[in-house]
């Protein structure tokens, strides 16, 4: 049974406690003051008019949104969504496998392995990205080795392959951490029990670990997919910047086009789109959870009857 199901079931019995409400306050306050309050300004600006010098005048207009409906922008959006989904899928698979490996190590070693995952990211992002450019470019070691075998002219810079690789590299820890955290909490005896009952490797994954890791996987999916939308350095440095992402679009609007109102409108649209997809994911999760729990309840009642 997943935690969500448990929570939902318990929700019918218990009332909220005041103590737990107090615990929520600092988090809510931070997000409201530092996140939502500034967003009101963004929302207001999205209806404003840009002046010629990059400032904002007080006007009120829907033009900024209307302009964004131009089909030139839909290509950028679709490309970003596609790349985001691809990156999320790759990160989840690799993140799951890596977390599974870490959890299977002795407890004392797990912290060390986790650190090994994060340490590379204490080198500056640009330094790492430039290292990838060196490695994948025509002057790098791969090209050198291929050159020995007579294959000349190897270079993955710039290419879409390099972008996918760069995105995977950047978001892998963000994917590994939540998956690891929820996998770590699974009772080891469950896995043994499943194996004893004749489940193979895939069976154990499907029936025990995957369902119990679902909150972590969902967290990981959100943490990879959404930020991918806002990425703007990787596509330029590794991909040649020919196919801009939504992140590039917004940065361009805010800086080069010095059109804050339109940048704000683009951000609001992206925000709404992301909120809708989050709600959809939430609904799907809730439905599968209730379905799972009701079928289980049914089964247990039949068992009782028998």
């Amino acid at each position: 049974m997943t935690s969500m199901t448990r929570a939902i079931q318990l929700g019918r019995k218990e009332k909220p406690k005041r103590g737990s409400l107090l615990l929520l306050i600092p988090g809510i306050a931070s997000v409201v003051l530092l996140g939502i309050l500034p967003l009101f300004i963004v929302a207001r600006n999205s209806f404003a008019v840009a002046d010629n010098y990059g400032g904002i005048t007080d006007g009120l207009t829907l033009d900024n949104y209307a302009k964004l409906l131009d089909p030139v922008y839909s290509k950028t959006l679709l490309y970003s969504l596609g790349l985001g989904l691809l990156n999320t899928a790759v990160c989840l698979v690799i993140g799951y496998i890596t977390s599974y490996y870490i959890v299977s190590r002795p407890a004392g070693k797990q912290g060390f392995l986790l650190l090994l995952v994060i340490i590379p990211f204490w080198t500056d992002f640009l330094v790492r990205t430039f290292a990838w450019i060196t490695i994948l470019g025509s002057g790098g070691p791969i090209a050198g080795v291929l050159g020995i075998f007579g294959i000349a002219g190897f270079s993955l810079i710039p290419s879409n392959v390099a972008v996918v690789l760069g995105l995977l590299y950047s978001f892998l820890p963000t994917a590994i951490f939540p998956i690891y955290a929820s996998m770590r909490s699974i009772d080891g005896s469950l896995k043994e029990a499943a194996t004893d009952l004749g489940c193979g490797w895939w069976g154990v994954q499907r029936r025990v670990i995957l369902p119990l890791t679902r909150p972590g996987l969902l967290g990981a999916a959100l943490l990879t997919f959404i930020p991918t939308m806002g990425v703007f350095v990787i596509p330029v440095l590794l991909g040649g910047g020919k196919d801009p992402l939504v992140g590039n679009l917004i940065v361009t609007l805010y800086t080069e086009f010095r059109n804050q109102p339109m940048g704000a409108a683009a951000s609001m649209l992206l925000l709404i789109l992301m909120l809708i997809s989050m709600v959809l994911v939430g609904l799907l999760l809730q439905r599968s959870a209730t379905k799972g729990s009701s079928s289980r309840t049914k089964r247990s009642s039949t068992e009782k009857g028998a």
């Binding site: 430039f130 450019i133 470019g137 025509s138 002057g139 270079s155 810079i157 710039p158 330029v236 440095l237 991909g239 040649g240 910047g241 020919k242």
Partner: peptide, 18 residues
């Protein structure tokens, strides 16, 4: 015909022949 748009490390790209 473009390899890309880059105003950051274009010099190195030219030097390396990319």
């Amino acid at each position: 015909i473009l390899a890309g748009y880059n105003s950051t490390n274009y010099g190195e790209l030219v030097a390396s022949g990319d």
